[in-house]
């Protein structure tokens, strides 16, 4: 089939408009306050003042490490817990299997905003407020992931499992030596998908973390944007710094992410 140059051009122009806010963010991050106030289109020189301000004055690095730590550990936990729970739902036939399945399914109907207050109090009683684990442990509970992986397990042909069973393998062995390698695409998809979701979460860290040093990147950056400290150049530089790792991550794991979205989406 022949490709159309005209269509390409239309899409390209639309795309340029679409990503303009990001380009403007990058350009503005090099401007001085005066250049922003006087509406200069381009900065007069490549000024890294805003960037050095960020690294010197604020806890951006700390927030970045917090976000990385929380997202990585939570994702790790999600994968383990999900794999374990999805296996009986997808593969094992036993009394109560259906019940557990519907119980999990019911979980996706609970919006977190509706339980944010009792959950906050629970974390307080557990002494988890302002702690990494106060974010990490709740993040690990995600019924949606389990349904996705269980569905994937269900689709794996029986031959693989039977061969192992004849050799006398245990359920645990089958799960980690047979099922997990076969389900790698699904697991990769949910881990990337979870990671991005946790990295970007705003409401929950806003509530749980009271100490500025414990903020995640999104909550920390929001303080730059407070109405009494309008330093747009610095804010934009902060945005650029915060977008870079996500951009790299996105470039590497794009396919998994898309799969996670569509699989999750189509199954939802």
């Amino acid at each position: 089939m022949k490709k159309s140059k005209l269509l390409t051009l239309i899409v390209f122009i639309f795309l340029l408009i679409y990503i303009f806010p990001l380009l403007w963010m990058i350009i503005s991050s090099f401007k001085t306050s005066l250049e922003i106030l006087t509406q200069k289109l381009l900065p007069s020189k490549l000024d890294f003042e805003n960037y050095s301000y960020i690294f010197k004055q604020s806890g951006v690095l700390r927030w970045f490490l917090n976000s990385s730590f929380i997202s990585l550990i939570s994702t790790f936990g999600v994968v383990i817990i999900t794999t374990l729970a999805a296996y009986p739902l997808g593969r094992l036939k036993f009394r109560g299997n259906k019940f557990l399945f519907y119980l999990t399914l019911a979980g996706i109907m609970i919006p977190l905003q509706a339980i944010m207050i009792p959950r906050y109090l629970l974390l307080r009683d557990l002494g988890l407020l302002n702690k990494y684990w106060g974010l990490i442990i709740p993040y690990m509970v995600n019924p949606m992931n389990i349904l996705i992986v269980a569905q994937f397990f269900k689709g794996i042909p029986n031959e693989f499992e039977e061969a192992a069973r004849i050799d006398g393998a245990s359920d645990l062995y089958i799960l980690f030596r047979v099922m997990v390698p076969l389900a790698r695409p699904a697991l990769a998809a949910i881990s990337v998908f979870s990671f991005v979701g946790i990295w970007n979460d705003f409401l929950w860290p806003l509530i749980v973390m009271t100490d500025q040093k414990m903020y995640t990147l999104p909550v920390g950056l929001a303080t730059f944007y407070g109405s009494y400290t309008m330093k747009y150049g610095v804010t934009m530089a902060g945005n650029v710094i915060a977008s870079l790792p996500i951009f790299i991550f996105f470039m590497i794991f794009q396919e998994q992410l898309i799969k996670g979205l569509t699989v999750g989406g189509l199954k939802e």
Partner: peptide, 22 residues
């Protein structure tokens, strides 16, 4: 093109909102 259209979706809400606020 697909990659670029998709990219804003993975940006954190703060980045998106402060950039647009600007």
């Amino acid at each position: 093109f697909r990659t670029l259209f998709f990219f804003p979706y993975v940006l954190s809400i703060t980045i998106v909102c402060s950039t647009w606020g600007f």
